[in-house]
Amino acid sequence: MSTSTVPHPNPVSHALTDSWTMTRRELARWARQPVAVAVNLVFPVMLLLMFGYLVGGGRGVGGEYVDYLVPGMLALTMAFGLEGTMIAVTQDLNKGVVDRFRSLPMANGAVLVGRSAADMLQSALGLTVLIGVGYALGWRAHGGPGAFLGAVGLLLLFRFAMLWIGIFLALVAGKPELVQAVQILVWPVGFLSNAFATPDSMPGWLGAVVQWNPMSQTATAVRDLFGGPGGESGHVWTAVAWPLALLVVFFPLAVGRFARLSK
């Protein structure tokens, strides 16, 4: 009876091909559900139109409200991405398909890598659509191409942090009922930010909470890079630091949770 440990033949190339296979799986699922994908893209556009026209704003933002609102909506969309990640991971866990993946001789982390690659792609697509609609509404980036790409980078970095929080929550909660709770809770968390209004226009204590919301840091830095109202220089570093800090906490937690599925 053999007791020698069989080494993984080529861990790096397996990890890459398996991650690509898992990403392809998500892309194939999109191709199957164009309506769901479209709804996901249209939802933030609806919010943008609602706050731009129906609710009306510009509570002393010091410029065109649309220039304030669009970067805020971009950040909010990244924050709400947490929900989508959590739903997808929860569904997989409850369907038994993750059991099959885990019983295959594949790279263990590929399930999570595929999830993040697909979610990041979807978020990049969402940003593109929202920026396009914002442009049509009269929003303009004034900061030049380098600053523009920097802003997009900050938004995606923030989304990446939300993604791993979403994976962690799904692995901890793992039940559709708890997904619902998170779906409801992201709203106050998203709205306790400077996405729609400046903290200056709020009562002092609320303004302080809003200032500290990591999403506000990203929104402020992005406004700065776009050269619009509500931007403050010096926030780029906090907009980098906050998501990195969240990743330092939640990435290992999520990976650890996934490994502990066998406990």
């Binding site: 799986r25 699922r29 199957r32 559900q33 369907k95 038994g96 398909v97 059991d99 099959r100 019983s103």
Partner: peptide, 15 residues
């Protein structure tokens, strides 16, 4: 060296 047929269908239902 193994194959597994679990109690719940371990398939991607959308595909």
């Amino acid at each position: 060296r193994i194959g597994l047929l679990g109690q719940h269908a371990a398939l991607d239902e959308e595909l």
